[in-house]
Simulated scan of single mutants.
Amino acid sequence: MPNIALELGKQSASFGVKSAYGEQQDIDGIRIVPVAITWSGFGGGSDEVGNGGGGGGGYAIPLGAYIRRGGDLRFEPNIVVFLTVAIPFVWVAGRALSRVIRVLKK
């Protein structure tokens, strides 16, 4: 039986940049390269008897795309993702700031 941890390690070695930057697409002379934040995790183990198991999973959040039109290169963000991340962040930051101010007033 192959070592599950070693097999998962070999497969995850190629995730890196290939998973964060998608394949380049050329559409009507415009070059597009999608960008995402990705992460993954794997685990495995066995007991004294030799029964083993493992599992894993991953997640990707599309951030936007690099777009080249002629000589112009720019990054166009995925606004929905930035709002989804920004709203809870602003709420948590506001709560923390209000508590800091309350402590400093005492």
Rank of each mutant, 00 (worst) to 15 (best):
R31L: 07
G45W: 10
E76R: 06
V35C: 00
G44K: 03
P34Y: 01
G43F: 15
D47C: 00
I67D: 03
N78E: 13
I67G: 03
A65W: 02
G29W: 10
P62L: 02
A60Y: 12
D28P: 01
P34L: 01
P62W: 10
I61V: 15
E76N: 05
S46Y: 15
A65G: 02
G56S: 03
D47I: 09
G41E: 11
E76D: 13
D28H: 07
G44Y: 13
Y66V: 04
G56T: 07
D72K: 11
F42E: 12
A36Q: 15
A36D: 09
G45F: 10
V49M: 10
V49D: 14
R31I: 13
G70Y: 11
D47N: 15
L63Q: 01
R74Q: 03
N51Q: 08
A60V: 08
N51E: 08
N78S: 06
G55Y: 12
S40I: 01
I61F: 15
F42D: 13
G57E: 08
G41W: 14
S46M: 14
V49A: 14
I79K: 11
A65T: 04
E76Q: 09
V35F: 01
I37V: 14
L63E: 05
I61N: 08
P77K: 11
I37D: 12
W39M: 09
S46N: 12
F75T: 03
G55Q: 08
I37S: 10
P34N: 04
I67R: 03
G57S: 04
P77I: 08
P77V: 08
R68Q: 15
G50M: 01
F75K: 00
L73H: 02
G71Y: 12
G55H: 08
G52I: 07
I67C: 00
G29S: 09
G53Q: 06
G64S: 03
A65S: 14
N51C: 04
P34H: 05
D72N: 14
L63R: 03
I61D: 12
V35E: 03
Y66N: 02
G55W: 11
E76G: 00
D28N: 14
R68C: 00
I67N: 01
W39G: 13
G64T: 05
G71W: 10
I79R: 14
A60G: 12
G52Q: 08
G52R: 09
G41C: 00
G71K: 13
G57H: 08
G57A: 05
